[in-house]
Design a protein around this nucleic acid. Sequence first.
RNA 1: UCCUCGGUAGCUCAGUGGUAGAGCGGUCGGCUGUUAACCGAUUGGUCGGGGGUUCGAAUCCCUCCCGGGGAGCCA
Length: 428
Amino acid sequence: MQRIKDLPKRVGEEVVLRGWVMNARSSGKIAFLQVRDGSGVVQAVASRAELSELAWQNVQQVSQETSIRLTGTVSEDPRSPSGVEIHLSDLEVLHLSEEFPISKKEHGTGFLMDHRHLWLRSSRQRAAIKIRSEVAQAIRDFHYERDFVLIDSPILTPAACEGTSTLFETDYFGEQAFLSQSGQLYLEPAAAVFGKVYCFGPTFRAEKSKTRRHLMEFWMVEPEVAFLEFEGLCDLAEEFISYLVARVLDRGAEELEVLERDTSKLEAATSPYPRITYTQAVETLKKAGVSIEWGEDFGGDDETILAEQFDRPVLVTHYPTALKAFYMEPDPENPELALALDVLAPEGYGEIIGGSQRIHDHDLLKKRLEEHDLPLEAFQWYLDVRRYGTFPHSGFGMGIERFVAWVCGLKHLRETIPYPRMLNKIYP
RNA sequence: UCCUCGGUAGCUCAGUGGUAGAGCGGUCGGCUGUUAACCGAUUGGUCGGGGGUUCGAAUCCCUCCCGGGGAGCCA
């Protein structure tokens, strides 16, 4: 059994393939089948004169998405979309597909989302999911090559992580439990075990967000490093994004072409990124005519305006403490500022990374928990990190769907994950 | 939650007070190099649900349901 991606190496040989018919064109005594097997797409040419009566009948009856087993000879042919094609000597129908709901013509988003399990078979969707898979592998490789240890943080958690966002609630043997919205708090104790750790898994937000930048369930990668301070964190974030972009450009070239992505816009993102402070960002926005005052957070449009100033991702640092999470370390030179970092992707894709140096002083962290009205007893284990050999440490989180949307040039996050969980929508 | 646009054939849509339409898909027929093939024929409807106005409603009004886009929040 051969796979389509290996066919260029088998010119002149007879091969057997199993796969699905994407399209069939018949012309009386010759027919063309576009066949997909998961590794690629190839055109099979059927000539009536060269086939048995049964095989020719089979060729005539195949419908879109019919599963087949074919036998034929590989040949080079410039008239074939992939450069090689197969001259059929036999074709067996494994299952004659019913009328496939997704035709070659246009469809609306709602219809496609209802048929997500079938929509995935189309070429653009395959390309996006393949790149997601490559990105996930690159994330693991990046950390593995740098001696990070994988810490799988729990998905069922007893209390709100940051105390702000809406969480999905569930019952845990009579106790209240929540689906995790971040693994960070569980990562910090582990940083005291291995020094460099990361988690990578699904996270859940029950916010009623209804935009192209939000999903209810998304995958987040979060590194956390002991004794890493803020400047080092910025370097790590930059190195990380550069690594992932270079990897996609290298190994996802074919898929980026299917997606018609302008890769020149990604090339710049493999070298150093500009860094500006929140205060500088506010000045930039004011000059651009945005009505914003120091101390206000950026909206989606503001992020786009900021990102448009550069041809590559930009690091925005030193946000006002009031805008950020309770655990972020204050800037020693100005306690009103937090050692916080956001990375904004170009082309309007918005925030892809959020991170910070963490508060490592026990009393300050305790004070912040009280200021945010968070229950101290629930965070006792988290405070313990600051009681037994505390240490400066930093980390960030990256939502991989936003990263994939950016590198693929996709408008909406729903196409970057196989089965998106959207507001009020959980089928299929 | 708020703003906004929409729901008519399997799909994408037109029809804005007077007999329910087109393209694509499907089906049948034709065609020996097709590239979303092409040509001919054909099939296909609870006009989102309920109520109201009218001689007459897909069309106007009320209400509910569902979907798209956006805001806020965030990754």
